[in-house]
Design a protein around this nucleic acid. Structure first.
Lengths: 343, 343
DNA sequence: CTGAAAGCGCTTACAG
DNA sequence: CTGAAAGCGCTTACAG
């Protein structure tokens, strides 16, 4: 025996049966009225809709999801949600998803694996259609679990290829090369690379590109890598760089947060003028990069384009497609005031 | 006739029936094994769990939600997700909710009302238990809709009282008063108030407190209010303030983003030294406030405490409680370097 | 185009 | 403690 009284929704108090009775049609007709493209006479649909509206009826997605394949739910799996870049991506994604008629469930992987595991189980329990991994590197096992449960997978800035998933990434290598070129063009003779130890594929790509371009041009690059990706490690990195006997005169930071920290350390702790004594280039184009204290020259993350690519793929691709796709987006350099002689 | 073959889950391929058969128990036993506190023998549960694990069985929340009252889903309704304060709140909330065994669905209200309306309908369709409004002021009608569908409501920094909901707010008035006191104690003679025109209850409270304290102390306050709450309006506000014949020597900004903009305008556009010529106090304690270019003295938003209060209330309060609750949290002043003579 | 019926996967009184 | 049975609210072949 179930909890609610017969034919009455637990929540709204009105089910399809009620609408059917009030409209003088069958339950099936009510269902058809709410299914686009179902075979139902226009007048019947109109009548049903009118009654449904009057009664405040809403289709119960729980029941519908039990039968139909698609739940309309997509899980957004991410860490460091409060970070400028990550939050911008999350905002863009929720907006696009919503416009595509989907709904976003977010799973925060910052904390204990236990709660993440449980949250993911819960998402699976709701027959979530797809999982989007926004983070540099959440546990590989999570992706496995999603796959095993036949979710579509979208991997943003990650490395591994998986059957039936898309990877959306930027051309990080090209950006690293461009950064080196910009520094040299600004007259830098002692180029440096400042990065974290996160070891994320996107960071690695930027580092690689920068190093390659330097090698090809016959330059030695001063490298410094430390901690996690944050403003604080930028401060640390800047301090290390400026404490060297031979100070660099240009630095490519693999992230804006790092670049901003490097600038602050150089200026406030060493009295180094940017860009006069030190040219700085960042990556992400976080809002703070445009603030008047920084005016950082940096690469823009095409956040909107990433969100679009993600939602497009979800909309068009069929679940369990065998082949994996790859979308590579460009990151373009935004000139502001932190590189000598430009901007 | 349904789509999948008999007794087989659409997704995982394994249902409770399969587990029951393999374990040699009834379907009810399987259900009980997955229900904490259900009346089932320990050995039976162990046996079921073992088989379930081996088969990769997961409870289908869709089906469970159809019967049980709680879905475990809570909707987070917010605008400006990419803003430092809002994203910090979102991060804290998702984390806490997750630890409490709930799952967060986020509805982004930045864009078209159409998609918001639809997303909310979808959340309702999933029998979402509660809605948390993080924004200053989303459409009142949304809250009405939630209420009509018997969701619990958590209103953060909002004004309206509603039956069966909690309001979580800060003591903004006290903060405004404290800010005034701090400015006067620093020797300011021409205190100013810089705010946006958002007209949010929290902003209004801070403004009020500041004005009241000034009036009581016999000071006239220089006021400037403009645009939305952002760094850019801070820049605008700072420019207006510094363009006055009689420049203020201390300013309380109702938000950190505004304060940071005011500082940048004062320093970079007018060569005004902070805190020597101008003391600045903000509100929120956004990460950027601690950056070395700013070292802003500001009030800390107790983001974690807000999230805790929200989740606690959700966990303890029963749906459809008639009386509304109010939780008021203090905002404490964090001394850094933007006020003369302190920090 | 329409309705009666079966079924989605689960839970929960009921009777033992 | 356990199982058989009813039911949650919906959708979809099937037969008309």
């Amino acid at each position: 025996m179930a909890v609610a009284s017969r034919g009455t929704s637990l929540r709204t108090g009105v089910s399809a049966r009620d609408v059917a009775e009030a409209a003088g049609v069958s339950r099936a007709a009510v269902s058809r009225a709410f299914t686009p493209g179902a075979s139902i006479a226009p007048q019947t649909r109109a009548k049903v809709m009118k009654v449904a509206d009057a009664l405040g009826y809403q289709v119960n997605s729980l029941a519908r999801g039990l039968i139909r394949a698609e739940s309309g739910i997509v899980a957004l799996i991410a860490a460091e949600l409060a970070t400028p870049y990550r939050s911008a991506l999350l905002a863009a994604l929720t907006e696009r998803l919503q416009e595509a008629g989907k709904v976003a469930m977010v799973i925060n992987t910052d904390r204990s694996d236990v709660s993440v595991e449980r949250a993911l189980r819960q998402a699976i329990g709701y027959r979530t259609e797809a999982a989007v991994f926004l983070s540099g590197m959440p546990a590989v096992s999570l992706a496995e679990t999603c796959l095993r449960n036949r979710m579509q997978l979208v991997l943003i800035n990650r490395d591994e290829e998986r059957p039936g998933s898309v990877r959306i990434r930027l051309d990080d290598n090209a950006a690293g090369r461009t950064a080196f070129g910009a520094l040299v063009a600004a007259g830098c003779l002692r180029p440096a690379l400042a990065t974290s130890k996160a070891g994320t594929p996107s960071l690695a790509g930027r580092e690689q590109g920068f190093r390659e371009a330097a090698r090809e041009a016959g330059f030695a690059v001063i490298e410094e890598a430390v901690g996690m990706t944050s403003y604080e490690t930028g401060l640390d990195l800047g301090t290390r760089l400026m404490s060297r006997a031979e100070r660099p005169d240009g630095v490519f930071c693999t992230t804006d947060l790092i670049a901003l920290g490097v600038m602050d350390a150089a200026r406030h702790r060493f009295g180094v003028a940017v860009p006069r004594d030190l040219s700085v280039i960042g990556f992400d184009d976080v809002p703070q990069a445009a603030w008047e204290s920084y005016l950082l020259t940096t690469f823009a993350q095409p956040v909107e384009a990433i969100a679009d690519a993600c939602v497009d793929w979800l909309a068009t691709s069929k679940p369990a497609t065998p082949e994996a796709s790859l979308v590579t987006l460009p990151a373009s350099l935004i000139w502001r005031g932190s590189v000598r002689g430009r901007g």
